[in-house]
Structure formats: structure tokens, C-alpha cells
Computed example of a mutant assay.
Amino acid sequence: MIEHTVTFLLKHASGSVEEQRFLQAAAALASLPGVRDFAIRRQTSAKNPHAFGITMRFDSQAAYDGYSQHPEHVAFVQERWLAEVEDFLEADFEPLEGGTLS
């Protein structure tokens, strides 16, 4: 299991139509093959300057790779993400082997 997480700050004003259109386009990624437990959340901590976070899970590295290379994901990154995201941080997590934490 891989949990893919990205937090980000948009170039758009908070609450703007542009912000909503970006989030709607991002939400469409939930329908791509292999994506599980997709969620978009608003950041609430003053410790993090990013306004949003997206999380999703994949059953395997192959499923994650398939998502990353999917034409719709590639198009979203090229057409929306690169043009509209001011800053981001990406992290991918796997459960600890043999551990009770997951």
C-alpha cells in the first residue's frame, strides 16, 4: 500500500472561481484506475502555508506508477498544476514492515 500525499498553495485568490475550477479538475483524478481513498482537504494549521492537501492510496507500486503515467494525470500536471500551483510538497508513504503502525 502506498499513500500519496501532496500539500499545495494555489496562485488563485482564496474562494475564487479559479480556485474552485482547479479543485474540481483535481477531484476528477479520483476516477483514474488504481486510485483509492481519494480526498481533497483544506489546510487549517497556521504552521503550514499550503492551503490544500490531496491524499490517495494505491495497492501497489505498479498501480501508483500507472496513475502517474496515465494520460489524464499527465495532462492535469502539464495544463493545470504547473500553471496554477505556487508551491507544493509531495510525500509518499508505505506501512512500516512488521510494525503495528500503519
Rank of each mutant, 00 (worst) to 15 (best):
E79I: 00
E72K: 15
N48S: 13
E90D: 03
S14A: 14
I2C: 03
Q43E: 13
P33V: 08
K11H: 13
S14M: 06
A51Y: 00
E86I: 08
E79G: 10
V77M: 14
F8T: 00
Q69H: 13
A62H: 05
E18K: 06
K47Y: 15
E18C: 08
R57Q: 15
E3L: 15
F52H: 09
P33K: 08
A75Q: 11
E97Y: 12
A26F: 08
L9C: 07
F58V: 00
A62E: 14
L29T: 04
L101G: 13
I40Y: 04
Q69N: 14
P49N: 08
R80P: 01
L32S: 06
A30G: 09
T7M: 10
L82Q: 13
I40C: 06
R41V: 14
G98E: 02
H12G: 06
V74Y: 04
G66A: 08
R21L: 12
N48E: 06
V17Y: 03
S31W: 01
F88K: 09
G34L: 02
R41S: 14
I40H: 03
R80K: 11
P95N: 09
R36L: 05
R36M: 04
F76R: 04
L89Q: 04
V6N: 09
F52T: 01
P33Y: 07
V6P: 14
T100S: 14
A39N: 05
F93R: 02
E72W: 06
Q69F: 09
A25M: 05
H12C: 11
P49Y: 09
F93N: 00
S14R: 09
A28K: 12
E3I: 14
D37N: 15
E79S: 11
G53C: 14
Q78T: 07
V77A: 12
F58N: 00
D65L: 12
H50M: 10
Q61Y: 03
E94I: 09
S68T: 07
A30W: 02
I2H: 14
N48Q: 07
F88M: 02
S45W: 01
L82N: 13
A27D: 14
I54V: 14
D87A: 15
K47F: 15
A13L: 08
S45Y: 02
L89H: 05
I2D: 03
F22N: 01
Y64T: 01
Q43C: 12
E86Y: 12
H70R: 06
G66R: 00
A83D: 07
V85P: 06
K11N: 15
G15N: 06
R42F: 03
A26N: 08
F22I: 02
H50V: 02
